[in-house]
């Protein structure tokens, strides 16, 4: 049992999986000697050598494509895209090839690739280092999208992603890397992909979110508890496919549902969650389904006041929660 950060958990997951199975290898920009720009792969090159921790050219399409090819050959690649913002050149490989391989080959071929990418804002990273891009992939059956919210979850879910026989996109909030720390068990179990997690149990409102917003929502809920508002907090963990059962159960429980994402509001992950709640829970709803998200502007602003205005934070979450509780 040791207190480790979110990024240390990710590093540990890769190290332990590489020790467990020699087919696991890493590829990406600066992942080798440099240990990754965020140091996610620190020490792995030293331990496992050139052939298992490979630096690649600045070509995301090639990182995904090479990984997919290796996966088809029986290897288990863990590809790093340096920033999630840069994943767009690889979309064709991921959506047209990785996601469809099992279906297209009638189950003969699978593609056990994991693609890791840091996403999210609030780090003064501006347009090309702050985006949330999960919604782009969230309508592609064949893919799984995992977005952990704590160090323990990051460890357990990344191991599960590496062991998954199908392609998994693993998005890590870059602000969480060194912000979130907690005690992680030495024998932390693999966490099943596809199941949401009930973080807090409550009676008054249901908050459903994922990624770093879970932490903010948790703190907001703790504050509101003092005013007598109890919150049912659900961490989606896996944003695609969604754990409908848990979403429906938690929504019916209080009838007041707040959905939160850091992404732009339109067509986001929580829009789909809202549709599920609308379809399945009408006669249990006690208030309009509420969404809290970034405004519909093209990208994260650079100016600090505008970045603050763009980002969902604890204060905004708390006031949205309170408003819903009082409805």
């Amino acid at each position: 049992m040791a207190v480790i950060s979110y990024i240390e958990a990710i590093n540990r997951a890769m190290r332990e999986e590489m020790e467990r199975d020699e087919r696991v290898f890493i590829l990406g920009e600066d992942v080798g000697k440099r240990g990754g720009v965020f140091k996610a792969t620190e020490g792995l090159h030293e331990q496992f050598g050139d052939e298992r921790v490979m630096d690649t050219p600045l070509a995301e399409s090639a990182i995904a494509g090479v990984g997919i090819g290796a996966a088809m050959y029986g290897m288990i690649p863990v590809a790093e895209i340096q920033f999630a913002d840069f994943i767009l050149p690889a979309v064709n490989q991921i959506v047209s090839e990785a996601a469809k391989l099992r279906y297209r080959s009638n189950n003969d071929w699978t593609c056990p690739i994991t693609i890791r990418a840091p996403y999210g804002g609030g780090v003064h990273g501006a347009l090309y280092h702050s985006q949330s891009i999960e919604a782009i992939f969230a309508s592609q059956p064949g893919l799984k999208i995992v977005m952990p919210s704590t160090p323990s979850d990051a460890l357990g879910l990344l191991k599960a992603a590496i062991r998954d026989p199908d392609p998994v996109l693993f998005f890590e909030h870059k602000r969480a890397y060194r912000l979130l720390k907690e005690e992680v068990a030495d024998d932390q179990d693999v966490i099943e992909i596809g199941k949401a997690n009930r973080v807090l149990e409550g009676e008054d409102i249901t908050v459903i979110t994922y990624g770093l917003c879970v932490e903010f929502a948790k703190q907001a809920a703790e504050e509101l508890k003092e005013t007598g508002v109890s919150t049912e907090l659900i961490d989606l963990r896996c944003v695609y496919p969604l754990d409908k059962e848990t979403i429906i159960e938690a929504s019916k429980k209080t009838g007041k549902v707040l959905l939160i994402t850091e992404d732009n509001k339109e067509g986001s992950i929580i829009s789909e969650v809202a549709a599920i709640v609308g379809e399945e829970c009408l006669f249990d709803l006690d208030a309009p389904i509420t969404r809290l998200a970034a405004p519909n502007v093209p990208a994260m602003p650079y100016a600090p006041p505008l970045e603050k205005a763009f980002m969902v934070d604890q204060e905004k979450i708390k006031s949205a929660m309170l408003k819903l509780a009082q409805f």
Partner: peptide, 16 residues
């Protein structure tokens, strides 16, 4: 006074 004049808004779960 406001209330006695307003028609009640009922949510689906309250109706049910």
């Amino acid at each position: 006074e406001v209330d006695s004049n307003a028609s009640p808004r009922l949510s689906p779960v309250v109706m049910r």
